[in-house]
Design a binder for these strands. Sequence first.
DNA 1: AATATTACCAACCGCAAATGA
DNA 2: GTCATTTGCGGTTGGTAATAT
Length: 306
Amino acid sequence: MGRSPCCEKAHTNKGAWTKEEDDKLVAYIRSHGEGCWRSLPKAAGLLRCGKSCRLRWINYLRPDLKRGNFTEDEDEVIIKLHSLLGNKWSLIAGRLPGRTDNEIKNYWNTHIRRKLLNRGIDPATHRPISEPPTTTTNPPSPHDPITPTTIPTTPPPPPPPPTTTTTRTATATATTTISFAPPKLEDNPGVIIKVGTIEFGKCKQEKLEGDDDQGDGGKGSVLRVGHHEETKCLDLSLELKISPPSHHGDKRSLAPSTKPSILMNGWGKLACGSNNLSMNGGGECVGVAGYDFLGLRQGSVLYYRS
DNA sequence: AATATTACCAACCGCAAATGA
DNA sequence: GTCATTTGCGGTTGGTAATAT
């Protein structure tokens, strides 16, 4: 078994790209477009692996790349997104037009990590370094297996279309619409799932548009979280899953037992604090502050995936 | 001026998901 | 449904420039 190599390595160049190679690649893609990276090198007259061509184009030659230093705003966006998504560099890059995942990853490792450490924040967990390490009640980080206790053992069912099947959905919207099932958690200990787009940032709740006439548990209710006083709202396409609150609203008590199937389906966890929504049961508020998110009680858990 | 260390970033590698036959 | 292939992602490496000793 085993796969054939992506290219004939014996006859490919490696290492830094020359100006001539760049020119050939750019010229070819300009006239033929992206795609079919495997056959591109030969067609373009390049002695390069297709993967190498793709990487060179995406990370360096693409015309829409924004080169130059990251701004303070971009720094903060990256930090917020990393606290939400972990090392999902491609997702983070999708929210930063003109930046590549590789660029952000490098920037994170060389600048932002140090910046957070200087602030006394653990870049891996986004929690204060001084905070004593916990053992069995340690809240999960984006890198931990997602193992909730408050939802059924089966993974969430596939979301109804339209979903965010593509991972690069970097469109910003003026207002945020969250489609979700009404959080009647006391009455509904089970799983509630709806797909929506949630925008984090300096937003506050405007109104609840109740259009739930479907009688099926409330699919289709729409909450608008708009009123963007600043333009820093991050558009995250998330599927949300809502579970009842855990004991006492103690985020640490959200520490899961074991439900690895959730992890395999790519679900992460958001915990509801008393007046905000925080990532993975702790750390910094992601920015939906100032109101009781979706009416959920403190200690509720939202499961998401992007 | 020479050498060592650090910082930066382009590029590579391996793996897994997606796709197609 | 199975297998082969392609594509994309994240971790890591290696070369080079900048800075310190």
